[in-house]
Design a protein around this nucleic acid. Structure first.
Length: 423
DNA sequence: TCTGGGGTCCTAGGACCC
DNA sequence: TCTGGGGTCCTAGGACCC
């Protein structure tokens, strides 16, 4: 039987923080989103206190304080680096891994034919990662990705499994489906689970009792794929990661937001610069950018506005100056004064590989020179830090900076923050 | 006062063609 | 009274994921 694995890091952001705060093991921890806005990660102890995923920080601040919960702003440099370590260890055990998100990877186990051997390897991997990186991992194995995902949930939930759970027989599958709430199935979101519950479907098992035709009609092709996967038929492909088809950089602004065009301009210039860097990193160019900015949608007193400017290039590009200047010009053109902007961003779309650029007969830009300059700027910034060389409009006022009151150090990526072990 | 950020895929409907 | 039939392409919006 062909099998897939799913390795999922438990409460990943919290676990990362705990690696450098061993005193917090067994204690409640939460990690906040950008701007210390919402709770985006909770340790098991915090979940037990009833803190919900995505809840605004200010609404639970008292509760957290009262229960001595350790609070962290998100530290993406740290989490990104820890993720790389986990993935690299994982691939030393399993040659075919597909990184699905910062804390998850699918494993293609088709080259192994012995289930016992897979089980042994899985247990070894989980133990080694825990010991070597300090991150607890749950691993599920099953004939489809949706079932593997379900197995990983059981692996995490029941201590007896020691982090590894198999759904590899029909009996186990039936039992697993009957105990699994439909709303927690991978691929079934809020809308569909509401609808399914209305039709009497409460568990994954109830769902597979529905007919194929009914599912196709009510939930379209994506719902049908989930249904088939739960029945044991593998039909969700692993994306052989090529390149991202859209790239977005956006931020919310702290407090009321920003109402001066210079401040928003500086922010947009920085978002555009970040987009161009991401494009270059994946060796692609974009044909179109979208610049957006909007006021606080949660307020009903002030004036609400939405800027959404779409700009196209004559020739697809990833050049920082071109993308920044077009973005800033688009913002200036669409600017409406008298509003407090709470969030803004830049999206690069119509992306293609940089070796397949469709030229333009009337192009006046020297593309070779431009590419050479980009390369040098990237190299300088790699050595000396992000944005050492920048486009002037990116500025230094930084009035759009994000709030992160509770951020931990860059333990693994900044030499100044490396922990010193005392003899 | 305070509410994240970054993606993918699918569908319905409009515009247009013969 | 009665208003074809078949395509393609594009876009906005919905639903989902982490």
């Amino acid at each position: 039987m062909k099998l897939f694995g799913l390795a999922d890091c438990n409460n990943f952001y919290c676990s990362c923080e705990r690696v450098f705060h061993p005193d917090l093991r067994g204690k409640p921890v939460v990690v906040l989103s950008n701007n210390d806005g919402c709770v985006v990660a909770r340790s098991e102890e915090s979940k037990r206190l009833g803190i919900k995923m995505g809840v605004p920080f200010y609404q639970v601040k008292d509760l957290l304080e009262k229960n001595g919960v350790a609070v962290f702003s998100s530290n993406y440099n740290l989490y990104g680096d820890m993720s790389r370590r986990v993935m690299s260890m994982l691939s030393s055990f399993f040659p075919q891994i597909y990184v699905y998100s910062i804390d998850e990877a699918f494993l293609d186990l088709s080259e192994f034919d012995d289930v016992e051997y897979i089980a042994e390897l899985s247990r070894k991997a989980v133990k080694s990662i825990n010991k070597g990186v300090g991150i607890p991992v749950s691993l599920g194995v099953a004939p489809t990705k949706t079932l593997a995902k379900m197995a990983s949930v059981y692996a995490k939930k029941h201590k007896g499994y020691e982090g590894v759970c198999f759904i590899d027989t029909d009996e186990k599958r039936e039992k697993a489906l009957k105990l699994f709430p439909i709303k927690d199935v991978w691929g079934i979101g809020r809308k569909h689970s509401k609808k399914l519950e209305y039709h009497g479907v409460e568990t994954a098992w109830d769902f597979v009792q529905k007919s194929e035709g009914w599912v196709r009609r009510e939930m379209s092709i994506t719902g049908l794929r989930t249904w088939k996967e739960l029945c044991g038929e593998s039909c969700i492909e692993m994306d052989d990661e090529t390149y991202k088809k859209s790239i977005c950089t956006s931020r919310s602004f702290a407090g009321h937001g920003l109402n001066k065009i210079e401040d928003v301009e500086e922010a947009v210039a920085n978002f555009a610069s970040r987009c161009s860097k991401k494009l270059r990193e994946q060796h692609t160019v974009c044909n179109t950018i979208v610049v957006f900015a909007y006021t606080n949608r949660f307020r009903d007193d002030g004036q609400q506005t939405y800027i959404n400017e779409i700009v196209s290039f004559d020739v697809p590009t990833n050049d920082v100056q071109e993308i920044v200047s077009k973005s800033v010009n688009a913002l200036r053109k669409a600017w409406k004064s008298g509003c407090y902007y709470k969030k803004a961003g830049v999206i690069a779309c119509d992306i293609c590989e940089d070796n397949a650029i469709q030229g333009n007969l009337f192009d006046t830009v020297n593309r070779d020179k431009q590419a050479a300059l980009s390369k040098i700027v990237d190299e300088i910034n790699m050595r000396n830090g992000l944005d050492t060389v920048r486009v002037a409009v990116q500025g230094y006022n930084n009035n759009w900076h994000i709030k992160n009151e509770y951020i931990s150090k860059q333990y693994t990526t900044n030499i100044k923050d490396i922990i010193i072990v005392k003899a």
